[in-house]
């Protein structure tokens, strides 16, 4: 589904990603872990198409298309979704209006007719119940004054509404208490099926207790330095990132 080859990216001339190789197949859940500053969020942003990041080398193939050639909204139209680490507050735009526009623009991209009000409301109600979100939250301006937990739940709620094929969760667990993590993880798990894939970017192993990955990759200094199964996450939790750093530095003869 997603094939990243030798991906290098920089921001303001500074190299952040230094050659990423990663393949994700339909039905799989991958986790990317790594210490602060390793490039995790940059990878998520590059995949979603944020223009501050300049791709200097490499390629990303997504469902047979060259992902890097697509505008952010086209990527969304093709079923890519990024749950933001820091969802943006937009005063004056209600969450409902925003989601309705998003749903219908994506349908338009796919050549489908817009959802009528009844179908849209029915879908909203269903997903609201799933994410434990009340109507009052959706009538409020997008993310404005939302708590950290509300923002993250709102991200996964949007994901549920847009039903992506490839979802990227960028530190969706940061700033959440254990109950909120459960709700968020539960939402993600309900969306998992054999036809879609999830990439979880996280600093801590905690979230992976709830969203169990098929593969875990450790990102350090702009490269994936170790890959394994979910046991790797537990090992990291136990030993900390230093053991990875030491391994890499020894390997590179530092």
């Amino acid at each position: 589904m997603l094939k990243i080859q030798n991906l290098k990216a920089s921001v303001e001339g500074k190299a952040i990603l230094k050659g990423i190789d990663l393949e994700i197949k339909a039905g799989e859940v991958h986790a990317i872990m790594g210490p602060n500053g390793s490039g995790k969020s940059t990878l998520a942003s590059v995949l979603a198409g944020r223009k501050e990041y300049e791709v200097t080398e490499g390629s990303v193939e997504y469902l047979g298309k060259d992902l890097l050639e697509l505008a952010p909204e086209e990527r969304a139209g093709e079923g890519l979704f990024l749950a933001f680490q820091y969802p943006v507050e937009i005063p004056g735009l209600t969450t409902t209006n925003f989601i309705k526009t998003a749903v219908n623009e994506i349908r338009k991209y796919r050549g489908e007719a817009p959802l009528d009000a009844v179908a849209f409301l029915k879908m909203m109600k269903e997903k609201m119940a799933m994410m434990n979100i009340g109507q009052s939250l959706l009538s409020r301006p997008l993310n404005e004054g939302f708590s950290g937990g509300e923002k993250k739940r709102n991200e996964v709620f949007q994901m549920a509404m847009l039903q992506p094929k490839m979802a990227i969760l960028d530190e969706t667990d940061s700033g959440l208490d254990i109950d909120a993590i459960r709700i968020v993880a539960n939402g993600v798990n309900k969306l998992r099926n054999k036809d879609n894939a999830v990439l979880v970017v996280t600093h801590y192993q905690r979230l992976l207790d709830y969203i169990v990955p098929d593969f875990v990759h450790v990102l350090y200094n702009g490269r994936i330095v170790k890959s394994g199964t979910k046991e790797l996450a537990l090992e990291l939790e136990e030993k900390g990132y230093d053991f990875i750093k030491n391994e890499v530095n020894v390997g590179e003869g530092v």
Binding site: A48, G49, R50, K51, A71, P72, E73, R75, A76, G77, F81, L82, F84, P87, V88, I90, P91, G92, L93, F98, T101, A102, E105, I106, Y109, P141, Q158, L162
Partner: peptide
Amino acid sequence: ALFYLQSRGVPAPIAQSLLVRAFATD
């Protein structure tokens, strides 16, 4: 904000309109 809207499938010109309208709301 523009990127956030675009990443949800809203084309840039429509995202721009939504943001101007949001700005005028209050």
